[in-house]
Simulated assay, not measured.
Amino acid sequence: MRPTGERRAMKKVEAIIKPFKLDEVKDALAEVGVKGMTVTEVKGFGRTGGKREVYRGSAYVVDFVPKVKIEVVIPDALVVPVLEAIERSAKTGRIGDGKVFVFHVEEAVRIRTGERGEDAV
Rank of each mutant, 00 (worst) to 15 (best):
R2I: 11
R2C: 04
T4M: 09
R7Q: 05
A9T: 11
K12Y: 00
K12D: 05
E14V: 03
E14F: 00
A15E: 01
I17E: 02
K18M: 11
K18D: 09
F20S: 07
K21V: 05
D23Y: 03
D23I: 06
E24P: 00
V25D: 10
V25L: 07
K26H: 10
D27K: 15
D27W: 00
L29N: 14
A30L: 09
E31G: 09
G36T: 12
M37H: 06
M37D: 08
T38G: 11
V39C: 03
E41N: 13
G44H: 02
R47P: 00
T48L: 08
K51F: 12
R52P: 01
V54D: 04
V54A: 12
V54N: 06
Y55K: 11
Y55L: 14
S58P: 00
A59F: 04
A59G: 07
D63A: 10
F64Q: 08
F64I: 01
P66E: 13
K67E: 13
K67T: 11
K67Y: 13
V72K: 07
P75R: 13
D76L: 02
D76W: 04
L78H: 10
L78S: 14
V80K: 15
V80E: 15
P81K: 10
I86G: 06
E87W: 03
E87M: 08
A90E: 07
A90L: 10
A90G: 14
K91W: 07
K91C: 08
K91R: 15
K91L: 13
R94D: 13
R94M: 12
G96D: 05
K99V: 12
V100W: 05
F101V: 07
F101M: 14
F103V: 02
R112G: 09
G117F: 05
D119L: 14
